[in-house]
Design a binder for these strands. Structure first.
Length: 481
RNA sequence: CGGGGUGUAGCGUAGUCCGGCUUAACGCGCCUGGUUUGGGACCAGGAGAUCACAAGUUCAAAUCUUGUCACUCCGACCA
């Protein structure tokens, strides 16, 4: 799907629209509902795994970023900075302007992410090994003033989930990361029906302050560009050293705390749209869809009441676990409704008209294949719907997986890599020695206009396509969004 | 941050080059009434725009000049 179609689809389905602020969008009810569904699923998974939800401040004092800078030596950019508290009327232009006298003693940064505030707080929360582990999560908005935006995929403000953990040693931190990996895999594969590859980032793309950044990457349907779906950071004891977060262990010795952080964002909605679509519009996985089944009555003046009461009876047969809506809007014709709900990606349509009423049956049309099912009223309608929904959920994943796998190529030589990258976008997997090519990475990125999306550990050794040395690493090249 | 594009009714556009046939047009949508309703219905009537903003040129500006603002696209950047 090209970018224009992608934006059109977001707008025509009422998922989101542009706001008057550059790079910031308005999530409309349908889009926000999708986000709430994602949120609910992940939130439950985290709570089951002993996470507690928290909320930290939106503003970060500049001095905290200074502490971080001294440690990681990287100047943070893309920030929104708060300096003043008052406006005043300009007599000249009769408009409001900043009252320079109201300058704050402390300048604040609107959070681009919350590690520094959280670790500054962990210092207060952690004294002994008994205080560990800490597993917290926050649902919040963050701001990164990006120079270039793409609706839902790269916004200057977005909603996300950020998990932060603190542990008594490295092993426990890594075990936690494995747990989160499983949770994210479940969310992305089982619920969002999005196929992915996962691995870890190269040094240049690792989150500053992290020892290792794990990533989940997928490919868009038509263009074959890669999208990062989720990220997990192993922080080691970097942030505890920055903010001097120590605990007393059983031996009475003071030790640095180990940490992790991880997140997913509203970018997942953009990913859903990029990946699950066809000529008829969006195709939502049933487990995410705000409406799973839409009943469209086909009526005329004479049979109107009969059909509505027939629909009432049908509704009684459907469990309230299925998200059902009946569209009784008389102002638009059934035809228009078919197009509308297909475009919105509603998994199942049920048509009820004179024919169904007279034959005591219903007509089911599934969104992914447009296959029709005629089901008798006396039969198990609820069971049939559940079965089809389940089937659509799996089929959507299968379609997306097939599509992604068609764009994955195993590459044996550098020449081959160059040739394939020029031809088409996709994932190009190849043996690559991270150690040998560290210095080359940026050069190669510029040359190929593709970057290493992630590194995968390989059990077998292979020959690096650049240095020729044996390596355990496979890397995945791709063009990022 | 560099280079392009755009800004006219809720949405999508025409008109701008070459100022006046403009009382600013068209399609969708909206309102009223009626007929319809099985894959984007039709008829009749109606409402809705200081043409992004500001200044200038002119008898006359959506149209020309200058400036400002906003969004967007392409590249650089991107925790």
């Amino acid at each position: 799907m090209d970018d224009k179609k992608y934006i059109k689809l977001i707008q025509s389905t009422n998922i989101a629209e542009y706001s008057n602020i550059k790079g910031m969008i308005i999530l409309k009810p349908y889009g926000y509902k999708i986000w709430e569904n994602i949120k609910k699923i992940l939130n439950n998974l985290l709570i089951k795994n002993k996470y507690k939800n928290v909320y930290f401040p939106l503003l970060i004092p500049k001095n905290l970023l200074n502490i971080e800078y001294k440690f990681i030596k990287k100047i943070p950019k893309e920030l929104a900075i708060v300096k003043y508290t008052k406006l005043k009327m300009s007599n000249k232009t009769k408009t409001l302007k900043i009252d320079k006298k109201s300058k704050l003693n402390t300048e604040y940064i609107i959070r681009p992410t919350s590690e520094v505030v959280i670790w500054d707080t962990f210092k207060k929360w952690i004294e002994t090994y008994r205080d560990l582990p800490i597993l917290i999560n926050q649902w919040a908005n963050v701001v990164r003033i990006e120079m270039r935006n793409k609706m839902l995929l790269r916004n200057s403000e977005f909603l996300w989930q950020e998990g932060h953990t603190a542990h008594n040693n490295k092993i426990n931190a890594i075990l936690e990361i494995n747990k989160i990996k499983k949770i994210y895999k479940k969310l992305i594969k089982n619920y969002l029906s999005i196929p992915f590859i996962n691995g870890y980032k190269t040094k240049t793309e690792t989150f500053p302050g992290a020892k290792k950044t794990y990533t989940f990457e997928t490919l868009t349907k038509i263009k074959g560009k890669s999208i990062q779906l989720a990220t997990i950071h192993f922080l080691g004891n970097n942030f505890s050293r920055m903010f001097n977060v120590k605990f007393v262990n059983k031996d009475g010795k003071k030790k640095y705390v180990y940490g992790t952080s991880f997140g997913i964002s509203t970018r997942l909605i953009g990913s859903l749209i990029m990946i699950h679509n066809d000529n008829n519009g969006l195709l939502l996985p049933p487990l995410i869809a705000p409406i799973q089944v839409i009943i469209i009555p086909i009526i005329n003046k004479i049979n109107k009441n009969k059909i509505y009461s027939y629909i009432k009876q049908i509704k009684k047969k459907i469990s309230n676990k299925i998200k059902l809506k009946i569209d009784k809007n008389n102002n638009i014709t059934p035809g228009q409704k078919f197009y509308k709900y297909d475009n919105m990606g509603i998994p199942i349509k049920i048509l009820i008209g004179n024919f169904e009423f007279l034959n005591k049956q219903i007509l089911i049309i599934r969104r992914d294949t447009f296959k029709k099912y005629k089901i008798k009223f006396k039969n198990n309608i609820n069971g049939k719907l559940l079965k089809i929904l389940n089937n659509i959920q799996k089929n959507i994943y299968k379609l997306a997986k097939k599509n992604m796998y068609n764009k994955i190529k195993y590459i044996k030589t550098y020449k081959d890599l160059k040739k394939n990258i020029q031809k088409k976008n996709g994932f190009f997997i190849t043996n690559w020695s991270i150690k040998d090519n560290m210095k080359n990475e940026i050069k190669i990125k510029k040359k190929l206009k593709n970057s290493i999306r992630c590194i995968i550990k390989n059990k077998k050794k292979g020959k690096c396509i650049l240095s020729g040395n044996n390596t355990n690493n496979l890397v995945v090249f791709g063009k990022s969004y």
